[in-house]
Design a protein around this nucleic acid. Structure first.
Lengths: 114, 114
DNA sequence: CCCGTATTTCCATATTTTTGGAAATATGAA
DNA sequence: TTCATATTTCCAAAAATATGGAAATACGGG
């Protein structure tokens, strides 16, 4: 993953409506949701949502499939993984790294939640 | 972490100059780098860099300390962890989650990759 | 072929973000 | 106190992004 791709993916997530949409899709699972329902749940005008979904899609974070008249959007877990990988991969200059979202070298008292 | 905090952190990283600066600091390690050197390496005007560092700092991704006349910036690994945690935490609706750059269900020794 | 539904593209406007010159602030030294 | 260095804050212009009405496109059915 190039740095510019990372910026693209981060930009896509760095907006309230898009982060909401993305998380909605992430939670909706592989089956995804039709654009209309996303718009309804997020209370967004159709063109506005369409614009945001296009951003997420272009960033490789979600994908689209047609089902009859509806366009179904679903999270692209692989794309998300690539981004997460990029963020952790370049951390700490490869040296003694204590960064990691779910598994510190020693899951001490601090990260006990979740 | 609130969704709006996540947007803040993601926005902070979603810009080429800031992502570069952040990664530079991440690789520089806990000792960090003075603003002047960051500006020089990234070839940014001082006010521009100052603006970007303030964004990263406000997002909790880096911190600042004074050393003589210099202001030293360093990555805040904890802040980064919180963001990564938020991103993974809300994925897959807590169900059968196959997301994670390297560890599907067993968050083993993550930092070992590459 | 025509109609209704679902969603997008077009596009102008509104809003937010980025940028760097000039001036201000902070620190240390002579 | 005056000077030089390091960096920030102020501010206004430039650039990028977000928003939604109107029109266009896609599909399925009658």
């Amino acid at each position: 993953m190039k740095s510019s791709d990372a910026v693209g993916a981060l930009s896509a997530l760095a907006q309230e409506n898009r982060l909401d949409a993305f998380r909605l899709l992430v939670q909706a699972g592989p089956d995804g949701l039709p654009a209309g329902e996303i718009a309804e749940r997020l209370k967004l005008a159709a063109p506005t949502l369409s614009f945001h979904l296009a951003q997420l899609r272009h960033a490789g974070l979600i994908h689209q499939r047609r089902e009859g008249r509806s366009l179904i959007y679903a999270a692209n877990y692989d794309g998300m993984n690539v981004l997460m990988g990029f963020l952790t991969e370049n951390c700490c200059g490869g040296q003694s790294c204590r960064v990691s979202p779910s598994a510190p070298a020693k899951p001490a008292v601090k990260g006990a939640r979740r």
